[in-house]
Design a protein around this nucleic acid. Structure first.
Lengths: 227, 227
DNA sequence: TGGCCTATTATGTATATACATAATTGCCGC
DNA sequence: GCGGCAATTATGTATATACATAATAGGCCA
């Protein structure tokens, strides 16, 4: 047993077997390396993976301990809309419903943080898959955060433009279920109050807010991920 | 510039700057290591991270190439219900609504795959946060997949029991928005048709299906994650 | 031309070593 | 006992080297 995957799996097994109960500190890398007759770097790799998976927590000097009420982590693929639609074998098209400048509502300002400018662009876009409404995108964009001129937004989605010009934005993503309002219902072709899967993203580059966007997916949408 | 994070960031920047357009093969590890005056292992680490983030795809001999329609990946924490409720400073309690043996519906059988047994346990549980309905859990469980006797289910949730006995099941997780049916509405104290955030999990150990579970969260629930 | 085999090559992993860094522990002076 | 400084220690990272593995590319032979 020497590969880091084997070591990782064995450590998983031993943790599961309560050899080290939740909260307990497991042996140090040197010790484990000796036990498994492997190099410390190999054990390190195994432990690092377990830490990423949320099974253990590691702190310098304090050592590695089994997580208590382990929140499991899953790596979710957040597809780019166009790619997602095309992956389903359908044709992606989109249509700008509205583009205006204005003052973002307080809820949006709060989510974007302190440096939110007074005026931003509001852009509403309807995305279609083979002509059928797929998702309604409602976005507020900070023009000061984007260098260069705005491209032809009838050809490139705002998201794709941002990804290509500011690819390292940090931020947060929030998933929720929302009842369709009159606008959502009209554009997505569903009843008012229908359950819509909603993805909200907030992005910043450093302290500069870039964009706040909410995607309402048409009823029936599912976001799946291996666990 | 020698740390793997700096190298990773610089590679990200160069990819974003279209130095290597999507689909293009980027230089090999040896070359990059020379460029950055770093060891190959360091560059390897940087590239590995970019691959995990979905920005590049790597194949032996073929090299590393920039992903085409890059679906972004985010690591989501899927909290254990009890931990999630307690993290919000509330008291978690739960109540078994029903526990019976029966034949799972075809939809569930299909999701669990070929080896689904004819009869499984159906367990419905209501989770509360400070007494308020928090989530309704509807589960089908394969008793043959779990070693040992069933514990006292009034003290331990099924999920926690499974996590402790079979902690390394594989599976899939699906997020969606669902309209509350009469049962969901009754237990969660919302109107029929209300938009509920729904998490469905299917787990297997190898080819043996373990459990199918669907969690309907009370209205207003949000699942957030750093991006 | 077409199919198979092999050489080449880029990534994947393992190892020993060294130094960096964070955090705890414990000592010291007060 | 308490505050703060310093020693200790476990993890984090970097490096050179070596070998493993997968997959392409090219050559050989029918």
């Amino acid at each position: 047993m020497s590969g880091w995957q084997e070591i990782r799996d064995d450590l998983r097994r031993r943790i599961a077997a309560r050899e080290w109960p939740p909260g307990a500190t497991i042996p140090g890398e040197e010790t484990l390396a000796a036990d498994y007759a492997a190099a410390r770097a190999t054990v390190n790799r195994a432990l690092r993976e377990l830490a990423v998976a949320g099974l253990v927590e590691r702190r310098r000097k304090a050592g590695t301990r089994v997580t208590q009420g382990a929140p499991r982590r899953a790596v979710l693929s957040i597809p780019v809309l166009r790619a997602e639609v095309e992956a389903a074998g359908k044709a992606h098209s989109f249509h700008i419903l509205a583009l205006r400048e204005g003052v973002p509502p307080e809820a949006v300002r709060a989510r974007l943080g302190a440096n939110t400018p007074g005026r931003m662009f509001a852009i509403d876009t309807l995305h279609r898959a083979d002509g059928a409404a797929f998702a309604l995108e409602r976005r507020w964009l900070n023009p000061a955060a984007v260098p260069g001129p705005m491209p032809d937004l009838t050809r490139v989605t705002v998201n794709e433009w941002l990804l290509s010009t500011l690819p390292y934005a940090e931020g947060e993503i929030v998933f929720s279920a929302e009842a369709a309002g009159p606008e959502e219902a009209r554009h997505l072709g569903c009843a008012t109050g229908a359950a819509l899967f909603c993805v909200e993203r907030v992005t910043r580059t450093g302290a500069v807010p870039v964009t706040w966007v909410r995607l309402f997916h048409a009823p029936g949408y599912r976001l799946a991920s291996p666990l």
